[in-house]
Amino acid sequence: MSANGCSVMITLEFLKGFTKDKMCGKCLPCMLGTERMVDVLERITKGEGEEEDVVLLEEISSHIIDTARCKLGKDAAVFIKDSLSSYKGEYEEHIKEKHCAQKSCEDILNYWINPEKCTSCGACKVVCSEDAIVGDKMIPYLSDNKPYYIKSKKCTNCGKCLAVCEVDAIEIV
């Protein structure tokens, strides 16, 4: 599954789909448990995950497998459990490094200006509505202009700068 995207995000989407579609809400562990797992996964994709979260997910899913009434609920929990064991690294990357290698989890993406590509044209600074980009425009014959860079604290990942950069110097990491 990781071939096409981030396992954490795929699991979250799957679970959200399950609660909206298949889940009947008749047996309590499945109904309440999946909702809790959605909470935890959402936390992780936002970069707010904590180290115990993987254990928590493992616990909830194995409990649901034990206690849920029907196969639908159990299957959903099996899906989560498989994902946790197969792609443990990805979960940990999200939690510890706050980084999504597949660039699916928008909340923990960072925009970065590659100084080697940047021509210091200043177009990105003009469009940034959050004043997250700082730097000086290149003036011929002067060499002490500050290079452009993005203050990640202010950046909202809106993507406007990405669109105006003619040399693709702005990268997502």
Binding site: L28, P29, L32, G33, R36, E59, I60, H63, D66, T67
Partner: peptide, 17 residues
């Protein structure tokens, strides 16, 4: 222990709601 563990899980879920 397995039964108690499962019950505890369900009750904790209910209590959280």
């Amino acid at each position: 222990e397995k039964v108690r563990e499962a019950r505890r899980f369900v009750l904790e879920l209910i209590l959280s709601n």
